[in-house]
């Protein structure tokens, strides 16, 4: 493995992903990430000069809809699987940014 993920990086990724990893899981994730980066390095060996980057796997563009209301009241389905809810809202732990 050419790429080595250090503890600091894995902790930072954990914060960004809102994940709390055990030491064992951290080690495993470090290995996974290293292999992914190695694979990217492998891809980087290809000469892509003059090739426009693609953002999508299909050669399709302009999939659009007209500005017409097609959905009705979706609240029942939206709230159906909420772990916690009132009659019409989700309930989540208070997370004020301050």
């Amino acid at each position: 493995m050419a790429n080595v993920i250090d503890d600091e990086t894995i902790d930072y990724v954990g914060i960004l992903a809102e994940l709390e990893l055990s030491d064992e899981e951290k080690e495993q994730a470090k290995g996974d990430m290293s292999r992914m980066l190695d694979y990217i390095d492998k891809l980087n060996e290809l000469d892509t000069t003059g090739i426009e980057p693609m953002s999508h796997a299909f050669a399709v563009s302009n999939v659009m809809r007209e500005d017409l209301v097609t959905n009705g009241d979706g609240s029942e389905a939206t709230l159906a699987n909420a772990p916690e809810k009132t009659d019409d809202t989700f309930i989540v732990p208070k997370t004020t940014i301050s």
């Binding site: 809809r65 609240s75 019409d88 989700f90």
Partner: peptide
């Protein structure tokens, strides 16, 4: 295709 109208009861304009 959900409406952007103001003032609906919470979560009624969702999909």
């Amino acid at each position: 295709g959900c409406t952007t109208a103001f003032g609906g009861a919470p979560n009624t304009h969702t999909c």
